[in-house]
Design a binder for these strands. Structure first.
Lengths: 182, 182
DNA sequence: ATCAGCATGTAAGGCGTTACATGATTCA
DNA sequence: TGAATCATGTAACGCCTTACATGCTGAT
């Protein structure tokens, strides 16, 4: 069983752009990345150590002006590791939607319960979509920038699928209402 | 920290329709449920024991004609547990797409690498979409059936979002091609 | 002065996957 | 006779989340 731990790739990917502290990485992840991947401190810091130990990253700045702060940068071998992962066409794409699970088994409860669950989902999506559109508008302005382009593609993936979700919500609600309310 | 383990709900949900063995549950999950949830034997069997211990399910048939085979059915308290979960509007909806991660950090590699990764994703989705459409067509015929309706709603969620994915793939590929191939 | 945010980390525990172990039956 | 499928389970291990521990800094 080869090492998995994709958080390593997130870290290497972030560092391929700019040096960062673990704390800052968390903030980046909580930005747009969170829509398709997440990380926690208890996840990031141990990984940072391992990546440093095997030479994928190095500390580039340690400001010990009272409060400690460790910035890391990616090494040549770390960059190669990242590239190797990118070139590997294997990718796990996993969706775990509890809302769909509740929908699937919704038959044992009244229809308005399912209806309500869809509405909760809908509201969450609506909020997230708005946020993604804001990101998108900023990025659209400069797609010539390599990084902006890739960033934009992921954001537009989110926008497109969330729009599809909302259309489905409307359809689903109509279908549920069409049948007699039990 | 309250118990999570949603596999319990999958089991209860499946048993709310009909008695099943652990082995059969796995087969059900590998059907359409797999698109938004999954389970393994190492996951199901221990849960079965726990659910039996706290009275949510009971064995209803044990055929020991040489090969052992244990069928379970849901109890009244198990059904209430399932209903309680359905009525709880809290739901974790989590998407982990490595493809998007590779896309996001694709800037460090040649564009055709990203392009290829999108194509791999596209092919996977195309295949799955076809399967979902087949499911959908069967279900559409009898939406008056409570369970069919709920089943159909999840399948159509898959169809709608996968169609959006494919449209996005085409757009993304065009965008990548539009810029000079590095 | 106090509280939010900056900053790094550890520990415990949960959940789930994979691999392994075992054995019967059915079909070619 | 051998392979695939039926059928139940256990063990190891990996990854991640949550909670905890600690202390500094900057703003109100």
């Amino acid at each position: 069983m080869p090492r998995e731990k994709k958080i390593d790739m997130v870290i290497l990917g972030l560092l391929s752009h700019e040096p960062l502290t673990g704390y800052d990485m968390k903030k980046r992840i909580d930005g747009a990345i969170r829509f398709f991947w997440n990380g926690s401190f208890g996840n990031i810091y141990p990984s940072l150590k391992e990546l440093e130990n095997n030479g994928s990253i190095t500390r580039c700045e340690v400001t010990s002006d009272g409060r400690e702060k460790i910035s890391y940068k990616i090494t040549a071998s770390g960059k190669e590791e990242l590239r190797k992962w990118l070139r590997d066409e294997q990718a796990s794409n996993e969706l775990k939607y509890e809302t769909l699970l509740k929908l699937f088994f919704g038959g044992v409860e009244e229809k308005n319960v399912t209806y309500h669950n869809i509405e909760v989902f809908e509201n969450k999506i609506r909020g997230d979509l708005e946020m993604l559109r804001t990101y998108g508008k900023v990025l659209e302005k400069d797609l010539e920038n390599e990084d902006h382009l890739h960033y934009y593609l992921t954001v537009s993936f989110g926008i497109d699928s969330y729009e599809a979700y909302l259309k489905w919500c409307a359809k689903a609600k109509k279908l549920l209402n069409g049948r007699a309310q039990r």
